[in-house]
Simulated scan of single mutants.
Amino acid sequence: MSLPKLHRNTWLHVGAAILLALGAMLLIRLHNAGGATPATESVQAGRKLAEAWCSSCHAIDAGGSRAQTTTAPDFVAVANMPSTTELALKVFLQSSHPTMPNVVLTAEQRGDLVNYILSLKHI
């Protein structure tokens, strides 16, 4: 038994609409992942966080100084490591490390700090 022609066409249109929507979402996702620069506000907020919470151990910019008793890497060096990615930094900031204080950041703060560090790439 076959479906009535109208019913078959309806399913064909629904399927095509779903495929079109999925394709559009994929293109949007690829466009956003393709090197879009973070908002200036996020980078500035990340710098403020770095000044408040990180600058006592890390040099947070190209000309920055840090406490002489620490071996914490400077943020420019971190940003320019080949392994440094947005995901790697977010995972690092969510993980506990024996040589770092346990700083609890919200997802937005973590994103801002990561955007700031990544903004230092190639400085």
Rank of each mutant, 00 (worst) to 15 (best):
A52N: 14
G34E: 13
L20T: 10
T71P: 01
G64W: 12
K5I: 04
A36M: 12
H122S: 13
H7W: 10
S2Y: 02
L22D: 08
E108W: 00
D112F: 00
R47S: 01
H13P: 08
A88W: 10
L20Q: 01
R66W: 02
M81W: 04
T10P: 04
G34K: 11
L19M: 05
S56Y: 09
H97K: 03
S119D: 14
P73N: 00
L93Y: 07
L26C: 13
V14S: 01
S119H: 06
T70N: 09
T106Y: 07
S95K: 09
P73H: 01
R47L: 10
H31G: 10
L26W: 12
L87Q: 15
T69F: 14
T10S: 02
E51H: 00
L6Q: 03
S56F: 09
R8M: 10
L118M: 15
L49Q: 13
D61P: 04
A21I: 05
W53P: 04
S96D: 11
S83N: 03
N9E: 01
V91G: 08
S83D: 09
A79Y: 05
A24S: 12
T71H: 07
L27T: 00
A77S: 13
K5S: 06
T71N: 12
G64L: 11
F75K: 14
V76R: 14
L26T: 15
A33I: 02
R66N: 08
F75H: 14
Q109N: 06
Q94H: 08
A16K: 05
P4A: 13
S95F: 04
E108P: 03
Q44D: 15
G34N: 15
T84G: 09
A52W: 09
L22N: 08
L118H: 07
T70C: 11
P101V: 01
Q44L: 15
A17Y: 06
R110V: 02
V114D: 05
P4E: 11
L22P: 01
A62S: 15
F75W: 15
G35P: 15
E51F: 00
T85N: 05
H58F: 12
S95Y: 02
R66E: 09
R47N: 03
A21K: 02
G63R: 12
L27W: 01
M81Q: 13
Q68N: 04
D61A: 05
A67P: 10
L89G: 00
H13V: 11
A79V: 08
L120I: 01
A33D: 12
S119F: 07
P4W: 10
L12R: 10
S56K: 11
M100H: 03
A50K: 11
H31A: 14
L22T: 11
L93K: 06
T85Y: 00
A39W: 06
P82W: 00
S95M: 07
S42A: 15
